[in-house]
């Protein structure tokens, strides 16, 4: 008869230890052995491969790993340059969250008066999802300064980079928000409006909070992409981690700097990736709990 919420409250709890049951004593042993074997085979292949010595020297030389990380008199530190990536990423993320939300909301405003606004929002997402990021970077980073306009033509390379990232990523994130908004059942809005809340109040207090909660995992996923794409800002001349690694590699004829840069990117991606996994798992548990009830 009823589809939700009528079961006893305790049936909503996920049964404890459902996950740990799968990894009992024997399972832990099996998974450990298989992990060790797996990596042993990979290591063996790497060591036995022809040219593996050259690989070790060019990519994993401890001296160069350390020196590129910290920098020299003439070469920038990859770690120091990476702080620029973190800076670009952090500023962009905040701006994207705001701009994308505005675009998603504008796209959903009904009524003929708002038709032109909706058109602009649609055109925006179509445009910026279609153009490769690197092209947007060139157009903004080299094109806008060329216009010689007061105010917008004399900004720093990093600022142009941030603008390009925000423009492109907001188009994607706006679509993520929109999917979230549309996943909130119309009856929620109807209930809010029937209490006398305005359309805007209903959006703000009832629809958006539910929508945003649902799209946090895909949102974090987009931000993992953004973290990596901060490297592309180097095409405008900013010395971020990848550019710094390039400089080091070119002058020292050693690629350990690339490995260092790669590790730094992975290092900041892992926490976000694990957080995304956890949130997805939590959502899944909730949905299953809901289905049980």
């Amino acid at each position: 008869m009823t589809t939700r919420g009528t079961g006893p409250a305790d049936s909503l709890e996920p049964s404890p230890g459902r996950g740990s049951k799968m990894l009992g004593g024997q399972a832990v042993l099996v998974s450990s052995v298989s992990t060790i074997l797996f990596f042993a085979v990979i290591a063996l292949v790497a060591v036995l491969a022809p040219g593996s010595e050259i690989v070790a020297e060019r990519f994993f030389d401890p001296f160069h790993l350390k020196q590129s990380l910290l920098g020299t008199e003439s070469e920038p530190s990859v770690a120091g340059a990476f702080l620029l990536n973190v800076y670009i990423f952090t500023i962009s993320e905040v701006l994207i969250l705001i701009l994308a939300l505005i675009i998603a909301v504008v796209r959903g405003i009904p009524g003929p008066v708002f038709f032109p606004f909706r058109m602009v929002a649609i055109a925006y997402t179509d445009l910026f999802r279609g153009i490769p990021l690197i092209l947007v970077l060139y157009i903004i980073g080299f094109g806008v300064p060329g216009l010689g306009l007061a105010g917008v033509s004399y900004l720093s390379d990093v600022t142009y980079g941030i603008i390009a990232l925000v423009l492109v990523y907001s188009a994607y994130v706006a679509e993520v928000y929109r999917a979230g908004i549309e996943s909130v059942h119309v009856s929620q809005n109807a209930a809010a409006r029937s209490l006398g809340l305005s359309r805007w109040q209903s959006l703000r207090f009832v629809v958006l909070p539910q929508a945003v909660r649902r799209v946090i995992p895909p949102l974090l996923n987009d931000f993992i992409g953004l973290q990596k794409d901060t490297a592309l800002v180097s095409v405008l001349g900013s010395i971020e981690a990848v550019r710094a690694a390039q400089i080091y590699g070119a002058s020292q004829f050693n690629y350990a700097s690339y490995v260092v840069a790669a590790l730094l990117f992975v290092l900041i991606t892992i926490p976000l990736a694990r957080l995304t996994d956890r949130l997805i798992a939590r959502d899944k548990r909730r949905r299953q709990a809901g289905a049980v009830a």
Binding site: A190, A192, G196, S198, V206, Q210
Partner: peptide, 17 residues
Amino acid sequence: NRVRQKIGIVFQAFNLF
């Protein structure tokens, strides 16, 4: 919005937030 304040409505499907 003002009219709806004076009229309470409850639906079959509760529609709690």
